[in-house]
Simulated scan of single mutants.
Amino acid sequence: MAKALLIIDYTNDFVADKGSLTVGKPAQALEQPIISLANQFLKNKDYVILPTDGHLKDDHFNPEHRLYPPHNIIGTKGQELYGKVGQWFQQNQTDRHVYKFNKNRYSAFQNTNLDNYLRERRINEVWICGVCTDICVLHTAISAYNRDYQIVIPQKAVATFSELGAKWAMGHFKNVLGATIR
């Protein structure tokens, strides 16, 4: 069976110093580990998927609108993939093993075709990296667990706003979801 690397929300708004909802330096430090993983997955003919938070400017139906400042507005620089990960995507976007799509909830499975995409390719193992460990990465992992995927979290390829949130999420991945931590 094939496996997939999910690179969650590695955008300017979540990663760049001046992003509207930035994790900052901890997220910027993920750039090389994420690129290394992506290259490894493509070399092995596995899949690299980039579920990317995407919101409408005045989407008052989305609960994030009430919880956070505007971020990842579709079509803005803030929603573009950050730095070298963005460059990597530009170079590899025509590869049939690379897939990028917008999501509008924490989980990359909610309101998307991700589950169908994975099942059509007989993918049963998902590696989940990116930001934020205790928000979108966590909710995507919970959704993967509920759909019976094997979950791997590469610890050096996830980041969030607080050390406490990161520690709690890593324990939850391992002890509650049965994820493998690498």
Rank of each mutant, 00 (worst) to 15 (best):
A38E: 01
D59V: 15
N72T: 04
G24L: 07
V15Y: 02
V85N: 04
R105Y: 14
W88S: 01
H65V: 07
W88A: 02
A169F: 04
A27K: 08
M170V: 02
L67R: 10
Y149N: 05
T160Q: 02
Y68C: 01
G24D: 00
R147V: 11
I35W: 11
N104Y: 12
A144F: 10
P63Y: 15
P70G: 01
I151D: 09
Y10G: 00
L6A: 12
I34W: 11
H65F: 15
W127K: 09
A169S: 13
A2H: 11
L114V: 12
N12K: 01
T140S: 15
A166Q: 13
K100M: 13
P63R: 04
M170G: 00
T76P: 00
I34K: 03
I35Y: 12
D46T: 08
T112F: 06
P69E: 03
T94N: 15
P63W: 11
K25V: 05
D95I: 11
T112D: 13
G130C: 08
Y117G: 05
A2S: 14
H60C: 05
N124L: 10
K174T: 09
K57I: 01
L118Q: 10
V137D: 05
W88T: 06
G178P: 10
I128W: 14
T180F: 00
A27M: 09
V23C: 06
C136L: 05
I34R: 06
Q40R: 15
F41R: 10
K3W: 04
V137G: 07
E64C: 04
F61D: 13
D115V: 01
K167F: 13
N146A: 05
R66K: 12
A16L: 03
L114Q: 09
V126I: 14
R122P: 00
I49G: 08
K77M: 07
D95R: 15
I49V: 15
S107A: 11
N44C: 00
H60S: 08
S36D: 11
Q87V: 14
A38L: 06
A27R: 08
F89T: 01
G83N: 07
A141N: 11
I123W: 10
V98G: 04
V176G: 03
H172C: 08
K156H: 09
Y117I: 04
Y82S: 09
A108V: 07
A108W: 04
